[in-house]
Computed example of a mutant assay.
Amino acid sequence: MSHLLILPFFFIITISAQSNNSTFPNCPPANCGTVNISYPFWKMDTESTAQFCGYDGFGINCSDTGDQTISQITLGGDSYYVREINYVFGNIFLADYDVSPAAVDHNNCPRVRHNITLGTLPLNFSMYSVNLSFHFECNRCPSFATEIPCLDNNGGKSCVHNMSTGTEETADWEGYSCDQEVVTTVYREYINMNPNFSTEFSRILQGGFGLQWRTMDVDDCEKCEESGGRCGRQNTTDFFCFCSDGTIGWGDCKGTIVTIV
């Protein structure tokens, strides 16, 4: 994974970076293998899922698989392997868990099985992202796409198309009788490093993609952060603002203080 070290310098966009200090007694950072988990992310475990300090949907599950400690986050009901989190630039680097080196059944010919769904989460794809469209069980591959022989099944062809080439708008797949289409996102840099899709597509997928997070645009959370607090919940319904002095505010760190027993 050493090639990941080249990625952060691409992200020179000026954004609001979240605090990553440990002065919040209710919001301690945690480590999961080589991944540091801190606000607005939070570590999930069976004993504290009723209370967390961070954004809804930003919980990270930490588990041991063989000799690996794996960090996973769920987006749209699908699991993603957390490669790294950069709190200075506000980026999280992910790979689809099904095609990542962390998968138990990992192989050199992984198949993407779902689109990437962000829903209403305060996340944006990196500007260095590229969409790839995979088409499975086709009768043949069009000239604007590349066949992936290792994914062919019972005579059905598997094809991949780089949607950044500008041909997607005019690409007509109807005549190729494909059974399924899956669109996934990868780094443009990994495509440049591995231009032969037919044999190197697994490296491109394993390189993953980056997301940038922004301030949660929920009124209560925005007010909490403006008052110097961190957003969180005591259970699935009650919003609280965790303050740097260890108190818990009802809405923000300037108003009513909540005592939880």
Rank of each mutant, 00 (worst) to 15 (best):
residue 41 F to L: 09
residue 107 N to W: 07
residue 167 T to S: 15
residue 255 G to R: 10
residue 172 D to R: 12
residue 131 N to L: 06
residue 194 N to E: 01
residue 60 I to E: 01
residue 70 I to R: 00
residue 72 Q to G: 03
residue 246 G to P: 07
residue 169 E to Q: 13
residue 186 V to S: 06
residue 170 T to A: 11
residue 132 L to K: 04
residue 208 G to T: 00
residue 196 N to I: 13
residue 156 G to H: 06
residue 46 T to K: 10
residue 215 T to V: 14
residue 193 M to R: 11
residue 259 T to S: 14
residue 130 V to F: 00
residue 247 T to A: 07
residue 37 I to N: 06
residue 75 L to W: 03
residue 10 F to M: 13
residue 58 F to P: 01
residue 244 S to Y: 06
residue 170 T to M: 07
residue 28 P to N: 07
residue 112 V to H: 01
residue 28 P to L: 11
residue 96 D to M: 05
residue 90 G to F: 04
residue 125 F to I: 09
residue 3 H to I: 07
residue 140 R to I: 02
residue 94 L to P: 01
residue 244 S to W: 03
residue 95 A to C: 11
residue 167 T to D: 15
residue 129 S to W: 02
residue 139 N to W: 01
residue 49 T to I: 15
residue 229 G to M: 02
residue 180 Q to Y: 11
residue 81 Y to T: 02
residue 56 D to S: 11
residue 190 Y to D: 15
residue 70 I to H: 02
residue 151 L to C: 08
residue 99 V to L: 00
residue 46 T to Q: 07
residue 41 F to I: 10
residue 19 S to W: 00
residue 167 T to G: 02
residue 181 E to L: 11
residue 54 G to V: 06
residue 120 T to A: 13
residue 204 I to Q: 04
residue 205 L to G: 01
residue 31 N to D: 13
residue 176 Y to P: 07
residue 133 S to K: 13
residue 5 L to A: 14
residue 187 Y to W: 12
residue 27 C to H: 08
residue 90 G to T: 12
residue 22 S to P: 00
residue 86 N to A: 14
residue 245 D to N: 15
residue 86 N to M: 01
residue 111 R to P: 00
residue 249 G to A: 06
residue 53 C to M: 08
residue 162 N to L: 08
residue 39 Y to K: 07
residue 30 A to L: 04
residue 44 M to N: 11
residue 248 I to T: 15
residue 168 E to N: 10
residue 184 T to K: 05
residue 40 P to E: 09
residue 41 F to R: 06
residue 222 E to G: 00
residue 248 I to W: 06
residue 103 A to C: 04
residue 91 N to K: 10
residue 61 N to T: 13
residue 255 G to E: 12
residue 152 D to E: 14
residue 250 W to M: 10
residue 211 L to H: 09
residue 5 L to W: 02
residue 82 V to R: 02
residue 12 I to V: 07
residue 188 R to I: 02
residue 150 C to N: 06
residue 42 W to I: 03
residue 193 M to L: 15
residue 83 R to A: 05
residue 67 D to A: 13
residue 171 A to N: 06
residue 62 C to E: 08
residue 101 P to F: 07
residue 143 S to A: 13
residue 141 C to R: 08
residue 188 R to G: 14
residue 106 H to M: 01
residue 173 W to E: 12
residue 245 D to T: 11
residue 231 C to D: 12
residue 201 F to Y: 15
residue 140 R to D: 15
residue 162 N to M: 05
residue 82 V to C: 07
residue 10 F to E: 08
residue 185 T to H: 03
residue 139 N to G: 04
residue 155 G to V: 12
residue 141 C to L: 04
residue 26 N to W: 09
residue 172 D to P: 00
residue 257 I to G: 01
residue 15 I to W: 00
residue 96 D to R: 03
residue 56 D to F: 05
residue 6 I to Q: 13
residue 163 M to W: 00
residue 123 L to S: 07
residue 226 E to S: 12
